[in-house]
């Protein structure tokens, strides 16, 4: 199983590797959610959905189903538990 944005814990950061689905909405890319950029998890709502992230300086909330398609590599492990 690949690590995705959905696996991040609060405060954890990762670098986006790729999108595992072809067509994520263009809006996501426009907001700076692009391969190579750093994602930080800010907050998760109850039932782990939606997910509030900071990517490339953009603070956005996305649903879990979409987060599952953004593969990443965790770089900083200072998660708040």
């Amino acid at each position: 199983m690949e690590t995705t944005v959905a696996d991040l814990r609060r405060g954890q950061k990762g670098i986006i590797k790729e999108f595992t689905e072809d067509f994520l909405p263009i809006k996501l890319l426009e907001l700076g959610c692009l391969p190579g950029n750093v994602v930080e998890l800010v907050q998760v709502a109850p039932l782990k959905d939606p997910i509030y992230i900071n990517v490339n300086g953009s603070h956005i909330a996305i649903r879990r189903e979409m987060a599952l398609h953004i593969a990443l590599e965790i770089i900083e492990d200072n998660a708040i538990i």
Binding site: P25, I60, A61, R63
Partner: peptide, 11 residues
């Protein structure tokens, strides 16, 4: 219809 839920959380 596909879900396109992307919400900006402004400062």
């Amino acid at each position: 219809s596909k879900s396109f839920f992307v919400v900006e959380m402004p400062n």
